[in-house]
Amino acid sequence: MDIFEFYKKMDADDIMLSFKGSVTSELLTSVLQIIEAKMERLNEPSKIKKKVYNVLVESLQNLYHHMDKNEQDIKGHSTVIFMIGNNAKAYSIYTGNYVRNENAEKLQAKLEKINSLNPDELKAYYKEVLNNGMMSDKGGGGLGMIDIARKSGQKLNFRFQQVDNEFSFYSLNINIAKQ
């Protein structure tokens, strides 16, 4: 492996932190602390810091719950990737994980629905799911992606790449504009 090439690629994409592997609660705590301290040093306005922090919590916890749920299920496909980028215009959060093909379809429909809504409709949808949605044992029962779309104020940028008859790779990119 050419580490220098790898470094240059990440440098060109303004990546400030990247990780590939299994997600644990302790790892998430550390990553959140690192990014928060970094934004503090960069003197980011509190509004931007909060948005980035919120969206980061939701997207990383999505990965965590995904692993939690699938540990037995997707042997060999249980690791994930995430990266956090920072350039002059925006903070970027990238995540990637395997999903079963049948779940990919459901997830894609949900993401498309979220992307079809304007800010007022998103607010109404959030309240509807908050008030009526079924709470899963682990997560917020589907509120996470709605919250990410609301806080980032941008369309969700996602992609599903089918790997074989069973699995697809799900990639998500969220940007939080600096102004």
């Binding site: 919120n54 682990k138 917020g140 996470g144 709605i146 919250d147």
Partner: peptide, 12 residues
């Protein structure tokens, strides 16, 4: 200061 969507259901 912050709450995640998992907490938002519990706060409700």
């Amino acid at each position: 200061e912050y709450f995640n969507t998992s907490s938002s259901k519990c706060i409700l």
